[in-house]
Nucleic acid binder design. Sequence first.
DNA 1: GGACAAACCTCG
DNA 2: CGAGGT
DNA 3: GTCC
Length: 667
Amino acid sequence: MESKRAKLAKKKAFLEGVHAVLTKSAYESAAHARRRAAVIAKAGGTCTMEPTDETNVVLCSETTTKAEAMERIKQGKDLGGKPPPEAAHWVTTAWLTECVKAKTFIPYDCFTVRSGAPAPVGESGSSAAETGSPSRQPLRHRSSSASSTSSQRSALQHINSNGDYFPASGSPSRTTSNDNNPARALDVGPMSSTLTVNDTHPRSSEQTALISTAGAATHATAAATEPSASASASASASASASQPSSATQSPAALVARSQRVVGTSPEEIELPPAWEAIYHCYNCGAKDHGARTCPLPPRGTPENTYVPGFPGARKRVSREWMCARSHGHRKDRQGAGPNDLIISNLEKLHDTYADYGTWLHQLKASNLHTALAFIRRMKEPITTYEQARRIPKVGNETAKKIDEILSTGTLQRLEAFDTPEKRAQHEFSQIYGVGTATAKQFVAKGFRTIQDLLDNQHELTERQRIGVRLHQELQERIPRTEVDRMVAHVKHVVLSIEPGCIFEACGSYRRGKKTCGDVDVLISHRDKRVLDTLFKRVIDALHDDGFLTHDLARSEGESTQYKYMGIGKLKDASFHRRVDIIVVPWEEWPCAILYFTGSGAFNRSMRLLARKMGWSLSQHTINYGVVRDRKEKDKKLGDGSVIPVKSEHDVFALLALKYRPPWERNA
DNA sequence: GGACAAACCTCG
DNA sequence: CGAGGT
DNA sequence: GTCC
Ligand SMILES: Cc1cn([C@H]2C[C@H](O)[C@@H](COP(=O)(O)OP(=O)(O)OP(=O)(O)O)O2)c(=O)[nH]c1=O
Ligand SMILES: [Mg+2]
């Protein structure tokens, strides 16, 4: 903790000086500024911003001096070689980061030139702007009563061929109804929690890449094409899933219902005043509602061309983005498919890629994964190299491999991997807490079986010891009925400790999967002060009643969010199960529930989209004006500014995405 | 030849 | 910081 | 590895 304070002191001291590594993206274009001014005016706010072509802010990091930065500009390395005007304000990333950490909203126009420190102002040009308020404006919570939002709805249960639970009826995706509405009270155990029923979900085939290539599909005669795009494509249409991916249509055949222990999350959260001041509908710009209840059609369509004023905002998003499409549950194929041999071999190849643990092989793996998604949807057998080449993401290398499988039945590459060492390495890497690197080390040490590890537990970290001991049990996926009971139990404990909590079981459970790898629980409370004790009391209570049996990791308040990772077991259950519990501050709820609902691939796609806009989406907030190092892509120089959101719908609207309910996020 | 490439977290 | 995790 |  001391080092942390020291760091903070250093940062504060630094703010006095001017140092910089420059990046170009820290200011908005004149076009953006003008559009933004118009939007704000339309929304009834006033805008103090002066549209300008000039750089009015220079974002800095701690590593170089202003002189060095100017030198870089002269050399053409930054800002396109154009020095910023004298009046430009130099801001350190530390300053910016601190403002964001302090939850002070910094809209772009606060950067208009001033002497002294720039004052963060509300976008609506409200009081904060005039007062030239101090740069750090603490976040205050509005203590209003809980919104209870459940409307009753008739229930019907249906399970698809895979056993996944689906929601039903024909309302559009961007529905205004709560995804969490309880429809039918259903006793799932001693705690009598309820199960709920949700909205429509027509299934579509899955697409696994973050960005997929849709165009090439038309050339692949047998390859499945993008479902919605292929509706009119003659021959290949039959190969694709017969369902449209758009959730606005509701084929009666696949209507089904999603059912789960109901959470207590509100449809929209209340924002702190400073955020409420700049909040507006990101689907139309109006001040009096959010995107969730916007009467207009989703933006990005011809009927609604609105674009939010934040620099980088998109007009629309192409269907190539995974998060822009509906991804229902993966369908179990009944009986044998025409390309099963190829698929099983390529799947094994895919697994060997994952065992490398390098970027390149990660890339190869994801490529192959996409190709496999197309191959799985094919109805005709692949018989030639040329035919394989026409499948999207199948290039020369993969086609050669398919050819080899066709002629020999196997792959040389795979045979070479079928050694005791590689098998052991793969098995070790399945253990919780053991990854590619440690698995390799274990093999190098001469270990070959799980028993070897059990006999040498002194070589393991605490997590790995638990992982090894419970390895068999943790391999099992959890039947949904058991998750129901686990969630009901946790919910009961949480709400008896603090009735004002909001609670939601997320992850694959919220997405309606038939079985879950673990239980993901998200909790929040309006009062920030209770979060810390709430977290501890919940974990303690769940330990005391014997539910939690092992701890794997628990946060100690370093972040605004508390995360517990551990293992629990119901008394009458056969196996120990992984349990994750996250406690988040109230205003981070929308981004947190979006994150925790996943899927992981869906999150990555959405986050990549945000990144491409010069924004950043995390489990905390969605930010614009993020400054990233142009060379080292992972280095973030400035956090940018928080865009306040009240619901998941708002995040979708900001990214120009149609809202996807949880069961359409199964990538 | 480059783009592709999530963004966080804890542990040791 | 690397490794492993969500 | 694939796509442009
Ligand atoms: C693993 C992983 C999860 N997440 C998010 C999305 C997930 O839904 C959420 C919970 O993680 P998980 O519990 O690992 O995933 P899951 O619940 O979707 O599936 P499973 O049935 O295996 O439990 O965390 C990421 O953002 N990135 C990741 O790499
Ligand atoms: Mg899960």
